[in-house]
Write a protein that binds this DNA or RNA. Structure first.
Length: 226
DNA sequence: CCAGACGTTGTT
DNA sequence: GTCTGG
DNA sequence: CCAGACGTTGTT
DNA sequence: GTCTGG
């Protein structure tokens, strides 16, 4: 699965990649600073297509369906299973019209060993920015303010990650990004087929400090390999 | 038909 | 044990 | 995901 | 809003 991520690249490099590799025309990166420990309920950097162009901005991590009575359900829905999201009432609508990318430099997975848990940091070899497949939602709170939330789609772990955990986030290849983001794309089979494990050989994995367990610690030490 | 749920993970 | 907040 | 709280009453 | 269970 995917419960904590990082986004630590330099802002100029980030802007360049968003422009060149993601075709982003408008971006809202106010107050950007590198993050080493982003947890559910916090803002994550996302890309959506508004029907005309790709836009980057922040969404609150934790999916709240539009019909929810209160937003606390979002604490649980920070992941959506790729195998079933097309059938679930909670995600079905978003899968057809509200697909997004969640951008990270890396994500963390915890290996459970009887009573201990060891966190690992997992990143791409070929890029400092990892596009994870996600779904977003718009929710009107009781006081009539809209909040925009998202969830990261998971799939079975690849051969590398399988050693520590049975699930991983869906990571898309550069050539899949536009088809995934296009809200007019109704080819459900093609969309579904993108939701597969990313190749182990293109990824790196290292154990890191349990500092990352504590969401209050957002420090470079979180990503340092042990 | 209406009422009530709608999700993921890990662990056992 | 279960829920909420980060 | 993990960490930390989790309740009521009355009184100030 | 949409699906399931009764």
């Amino acid at each position: 699965m995917c419960g904590h991520v990082t986004l630590e690249l330099d802002i100029q490099l980030l802007r360049d990649i968003l422009n060149e590799a993601y075709g982003v025309k408008t971006m809202t990166l106010n107050h950007y600073k590198p993050r080493y420990n982003i947890a559910p309920s916090q803002p994550v950097l996302s890309v959506i297509n508004d029907g005309v162009s790709n836009r980057a901005g922040y969404l609150k991590w934790g999916f709240v369906p539009s019909w929810s009575k209160d937003s606390s359900i979002g604490n649980k829905l920070f992941n959506a299973r790729s195998e079933t999201l097309a059938l679930k009432p909670t995600f079905k609508d978003a899968f057809s019209t509200k697909r997004c990318l969640i951008l990270a430099s890396s994500f963390y997975e915890w290996q459970s060993h009887s009573s201990d848990k060891t966190p690992y940091r997992i990143a791409l070899k070929e890029s400092p920015l990892m596009p994870m497949a996600g779904l977003w939602s718009s929710y009107k709170t009781p006081d009539n303010t809209k909040i925009y939330t998202c969830t990261i789609i998971t799939t079975q772990a690849n051969d590398m990650i399988k050693n520590i955990h049975n699930r991983m986030p869906v990571i898309l290849s550069p050539n899949q990004l536009n088809a995934w983001l296009n809200p007019k794309n109704k080819d459900v089979l093609a969309l579904q087929s993108m939701l597969s494990p990313y190749a182990s050989k293109s990824m790196t994995m290292h154990p890191v400090s349990t500092l990352v367990n504590n969401v209050k610690i957002d420090h470079e030490d979180c990503i340092r390999p042990l």
